[in-house]
């Protein structure tokens, strides 16, 4: 019973982090049809800013968090304007290569700036404490992570479903040419969505540093994981990413608890089986 609950809580927390980081990737992939292998790089940049702010500058965590996200968005914006804009028009393979190149440059930059060791982020006292929920105790960090994941999901739903920006974004995802011909500035929508995705990746990277430790090679190490979430969830589907991230989070945690020696093998075998059955993912739309 306690084991099941542990698996569930850890798995859901892990899945929430995956969701927060990968949802931006899913949106940009669905929107711009660009395979952005450098997406994890934005989580790294966020983590690097947060590390620098909390450790070297002595800024508190709750101040450093928004600053680091802002910093990441300020890096993402010119990248989108200068590089990604041209990458949208490339073929799949060129996109993969160009974004691998960008990933390498991000890793090298962070490496030059902060070195290749673990980039620790100092968490506030409160996050480390266990919390008594009456029937059992849970680490505060897990609760915050799960809460943040739900908040991101709700926030995205509000933005996409209830605002003018969301409406235009959905129109651009459904049919870019028609949306543009109706007078929607798709270039601006792309830039905004890209920055939103980069900011969310930074948020997830910082919040999840306990579960996915941040160092310079972060984008390469977890790239496959984030891409799998998108591939399983279906490109461009937020609900799909949510379901896939939670499912994969619980699956990986459970296989690590229950079959520790073959956890990764079991995990990838499940992913292959699922993608073989549903090549477009859980909620992928036909294009």
């Amino acid at each position: 019973m306690s084991l099941t609950l542990n698996i569930l809580v850890d798995g859901i927390a892990y899945g929430m982090i995956l969701f927060i980081i990968a949802v931006g990737l899913s949106v940009t992939m669905g929107l711009m049809r660009v395979i952005n292998l450098a997406h994890g790089g934005f989580a790294l940049i966020g983590g690097a800013f947060a590390h620098w702010l909390t450790m070297a500058q002595g800024v508190g965590f709750w101040v450093a968090l928004p600053l680091a996200i802002l910093g990441t968005v300020l890096v993402a914006l010119p990248l989108e304007r200068l590089l990604y804009r041209r990458i949208y028009g490339f073929g799949e393979l060129q996109q993969v290569l160009a974004t691998i190149g960008i990933t390498f440059l991000m890793i090298a930059t962070v490496n030059l700036w902060l070195g290749s060791s673990l980039l620790q982020i100092r968490l506030p006292e409160g996050l480390g404490q266990p919390v008594d929920l009456g029937f059992r105790t849970l680490p505060m960090h897990r609760i915050v992570v799960i809460g943040a994941g739900l908040a991101v999901m709700a926030g995205l739903w509000l933005v996409l479903d209830r605002t003018g920006f969301g409406m235009r974004l959905r129109a651009a995802v459904d049919n870019r040419a028609t949306a543009a011909s109706l007078g929607i500035d798709t270039g601006r929508i792309f830039a905004l969505a890209f920055c939103l995705g980069a900011g969310l990746a930074a948020f997830g990277g910082i919040l999840g540093a306990e579960l996915l430790p941040v160092d310079a090679y972060y984008p390469l190490r977890y790239m496959v994981l984030f891409l799998i979430v998108v591939a399983v969830g279906g490109m461009g589907s937020i609900l799909g990413s949510f379901a896939a991230a939670l499912g994969l989070g619980i699956l990986e945690t459970a296989s690590r608890y229950l079959v520790p020696d073959f956890g990764t093998i079991f995990f990838f075998a499940c992913v292959i089986a699922l993608l073989a059955l549903r090549p477009r993912g859980l909620m992928g739309r036909l294009t």
Binding site: I35, M235, T264, P279
Partner: peptide
């Protein structure tokens, strides 16, 4: 299995196969 897939899914699957092999060699 892989040659039924296209694009991103195919790229993902090829990566996944290599990762599984690496895990097996490790274990």
């Amino acid at each position: 299995v892989l040659m039924r897939a296209q694009g991103l899914t195919l790229i993902m699957l090829t990566i996944a196969v290599a990762q599984i092999c690496m895990e097996i060699a490790n274990k």
